[in-house]
């Protein structure tokens, strides 16, 4: 069983929901990324989602766009992301790690080379925002060869037939995009998400995590009550960035993010389900 499947199974037995923080590799610095991952685990992360810096992050809102720009200014790349995973694995062999990014860096490295390097590093899954099922055959063949999960997005605009097509290609979990928009948007509609999750679950047995628009303990609690996992990104990155802007050092800035994550963890665990 993959680390991701095992993680959701264990949580299910405990009656808990997965908390999935997202950070960008190299933001605020490359050296700080691995220590931050360990801190996120210590403060309640079940799965870590690492953003791979890209020059044109088309699905990101302003907060994560700036994180990508800072990471690129620090020279961070897909290779660095894989190095980060390998270093993280030296001290943590349990927490699943997935890379979330855009097609071109993976395409440029080559699907086979990426799969080999990622498997060696101890990566569990890949999520490429701009590779829908129509375009996924090449990369999926390589990911499956090394036993890696491919995480797909399902959106509010995804019709039933497309959900089936996505589920055919997906493994690990389904990432439901809670709203029409970019990351960090502010118009989460819980009733709509509830209805959509029922639609997805009627067509898939995979766990469903929900992301986009979850920013605090309260919104995390509402989502945890209906989903198998909660993804939170912009809120954590914003906490770090505004702390740095206010003059804090990197350690204090990261503490701001992990403190917020701990609060969100409480929100997730307080959800009745």
């Amino acid at each position: 069983m993959s680390r991701i499947a095992g993680c959701f199974e264990r949580l299910k037995e405990q009656g808990r929901k997965a908390l999935v923080p997202y950070i960008v590799v190299g933001d605020p610095s490359l050296e700080a990324t691995v220590p931050l991952m360990h801190e996120l685990v210590a403060n309640g992360a079940d799965i870590i989602e690492l953003g791979v810096p890209f020059s044109d992050p088309m699905s990101e809102g302003p907060v994560i766009q700036l994180a990508h720009e800072r990471a690129l200014a620090n020279g961070a790349s897909l290779r660095d992301a894989l190095d980060v995973v390998r270093t993280f694995r030296e001290r943590n062999n349990e927490t699943p790690v997935l890379l979330m990014g855009y097609a071109n860096p993976v395409e440029h490295m080559g699907y086979a080379a990426f799969a080999d390097a990622a498997a060696t590093a101890g990566l569990d899954a890949l999520l490429t925002v701009d590779i829908p099922p129509e375009e996924v055959a090449g990369v999926n063949a390589e990911l499956h060869r090394v036993g890696m999960d491919n995480i797909f997005l399902v959106a509010p605009t995804t019709p039933d037939a497309r959900i089936d097509r996505i589920v055919d290609q997906a493994s690990g979990f389904i990432y439901y995009v809670s709203l029409k928009g970019v990351t960090g948007a502010g118009h989460l509609d819980i009733d709509d998400v509830t209805a959509q999750l029922a639609r997805i679950r009627s067509r898939s047995k995979l766990p469903v995590a929900v992301g986009f628009g979850i920013r605090d303990a309260a919104s995390a609690r509402s989502i945890a009550a209906i989903a198998d996992g909660v993804v939170v990104g912009s809120a954590l990155i914003s906490a770090m960035a505004s702390s740095l802007e206010a003059g804090a050092d990197q350690q204090a800035a990261q503490a701001a993010a992990t403190t917020l994550l701990a609060e969100i963890r409480k929100g997730v665990d307080s959800a009745a389900s």
């Binding site: 701009d130 129509e134 959106a155 019709p159």
Partner: peptide, 20 residues
């Protein structure tokens, strides 16, 4: 039918836009 010109073209966008 997939929008490809040889190996080029295609539909590499986020899921939200696919049905549009």
């Amino acid at each position: 039918a997939e929008g490809r010109f040889g190996i080029y073209g295609g539909k590499f966008v986020a899921e939200t836009l696919m049905s549009a």
